[in-house]
């Protein structure tokens, strides 16, 4: 009697699945609103996550290129500067050294800042010549610190600075942000559960008669539960897809400005798009929340509805 006929079983599930979808299209306005709420609630933390992920990517990129700026004293002339550069190249922890004369530094600053007029009013070049030092890739934090001290101790050196301090700060902010996002994501997931749970609860109440009749003719709780679980499934799935679309559109909208900004900073930065992974994970996340929310609602109300 309890023969497990697999194709038959799957076919029945498919029927219930489509039936639930059909039910949702009967109340289009309510369904669309529910699905939008779910979509936005999922899109928000996902969007923040994508943003942080991109910031992290950029800072990692800079991490590789961690460099030391060595500001020489104003009095140092070009030939001495170049001499120092080639000397330093032979140091063990140094990969390469770029020498940038005071006037080169000024020109670069002029281009980037666009403050031509102000710069023209200055009586003399305020910028010192600079040695840009790239430590070897393998150099550890500690070695770089030592290198920094050795450079600082040199006679012609005014100031040796690791361009990392602010990066460290950005990282910390980033980590804090990630925790914040986790909390927001958890809170919004709970609200998605509640929205779906409440919607399903209303659906259950509006179908009490039907549930009673089903139980009277031998329907199990699992049978009664199934269409509601699929309702939650559809809400969650479509909500997840809407979240994905929302993110896609937002990213499309800010991609242009971000690329412009990146080019200003001579960065190779490209906004990382929602990968295929995101396309799968958002709807998946949505449908898991949907089924869970439905499960909670049905679990609470199913036993109350008994034929009498």
């Amino acid at each position: 009697m309890l023969s497990l006929n697999l194709p038959n079983y799957l076919l029945r599930h498919l029927q219930v699945m489509l039936y639930s979808l059909g039910q949702l299209t009967r109340t289009p306005v309510a369904s669309v609103m529910t699905v939008l709420v779910i979509g936005i609630a999922i899109a928000l933390p996902a969007g923040l996550y994508v943003m942080l992920h991109n910031i992290e990517k950029v800072t990692n990129q800079w991490d590789d290129a961690s460099q030391i700026s060595v500001f020489l004293q104003h009095t140092t002339n070009d030939s001495r500067g170049k001499q120092l550069a080639s000397q330093l190249t032979s140091w063990p922890d140094i990969e390469s050294v770029d020498y940038r004369s005071a006037s080169e530094a000024l020109n670069e600053f002029r281009e980037l800042s666009g403050m031509d007029e102000i710069l023209d009013t200055l009586p003399k070049n305020p910028l010192p010549p600079v040695l840009l030092i790239h430590p070897t890739k393998s150099a550890q934090q500690e070695a770089i610190q030592q290198l920094l001290e050795r450079l600082q101790a040199m006679q012609e050196v005014e100031l040796a600075e690791l361009d990392m301090a602010w990066l460290q700060r950005l990282r910390t902010i980033n980590e804090t942000g990630q925790r914040g996002i986790t909390i927001i994501a958890v809170l919004l997931s709970i609200s998605v559960l509640l929205v779906i749970g409440n919607t399903i609860r209303l659906a259950i109440l509006s179908r009490q008669t039907e549930i009673k009749v089903i139980k009277l003719v031998g329907g199990t709780n699992a049978f009664v539960r199934r269409p509601f679980l699929y309702t939650g499934f559809w809400y969650g799935l479509v909500g997840g897809i809407i979240a994905w679309l929302t993110l896609l559109i937002t990213l499309l909208a800010i991609n242009g400005p971000i690329n412009k900004l990146a080019s200003l900073y001579e960065s190779q930065f490209n906004l990382e798009w929602l990968s295929g992974q995101m396309f799968i994970s958002l709807p998946l996340f949505g449908l898991i929340l949907g089924v869970m929310g439905a499960w909670l609602a049905v679990g609470r109300h199913l036993n109350d509805i008994e034929p009498s």
């Binding site: 006929n5 038959n8 079983y9 076919l11 029945r12 009749v213 089903i214 003719v217 031998g218 329907g219 199990t220 049978f223």
Partner: peptide
């Protein structure tokens, strides 16, 4: 309905 519940085939 009772047959659907009992999982009879189409």
């Amino acid at each position: 309905l009772p047959l659907i519940i009992a999982g009879e085939n189409h």
